[in-house]
Amino acid sequence: MSAPATIVDVRGVDVELGGRRILTDVNFSVRSGDFTGLIGSNGAGKTTLLRLMLGLVQPTQGEVVWPSHAREQRRVGYVPQKVALDVDVPLRVRDFVALGDDGHRYGLRRRTPDTWRRVHDVLDAVEASDLAERRIGALSGGELQRVLMAHALVSAPELLLLDEPLANLDPGATEDIVSLLARVREREHVAILLSAHDINSLLGVMDRVVYIANAHVASGPTDEVVRPDVLSKLYGHHVDVVRVHGRFLVVTGTTSQEPVAEHPDLVVE
């Protein structure tokens, strides 16, 4: 089997917004089929990085390269964290999902049965088939999130970008969405890049991590990135990485180099 193709390559990118440096020398790439977690605390620049990839933010240095021309061909799906949605628009869920395929096209092309089959297919993939006939303005937050995923998936993207889909979810719902995304990746053969401020909910499914801190990023397989030496370099000061029951705890702001505790279940790396 040949190596998976690169979908997007972010090369030495700097971003400034409002005269302030937000991101510095960002390098990473996403290959087809990857499940990548984009991890960083609030305000670290996750949304900015996603918008950079979509071409909605311009870099001051470096470039974002799409070797397969996925972006020109609009084969990138995006689920923003917040959507300004007019709830009064007379639109069923399936109409809205279909607009993800042809909503940007001027002209009179009729929708074929194939289009509708595809719409129902992606609604099925995100386990939202029962919502198809509902009015878009009458959905709950969780329902809307699934519909937005279907909307992003309907044009068969190579890469799905999701901005903090796990924010504001209770632990059970978080697990549901993460496992749903894992199934979507298999079923739709789509690479996933998902931003989150907590790394642990993604550990089971994530192949690679892009970790943002202090305007810099480190990227690679999870075990190679989430380590005290790598993260300390990123943050610019000493950082502890604690493992409890197979979960990570990144402790920043400590000046001590001592182990944090002597608990038998605790491994300080």
Binding site: R74, Y78, D86, V89, F96, G103, H104, L108
Partner: peptide
């Protein structure tokens, strides 16, 4: 209006998403 039907609908329902799709 017919030519602009879908873009008008899309832009009215979710302007940000429509912009992301290049509208």
């Amino acid at each position: 209006l017919a030519v602009m039907y879908r873009p008008l609908l899309f832009n009215a329902a979710a302007p940000d998403l429509a912009a992301v799709r290049g509208l």
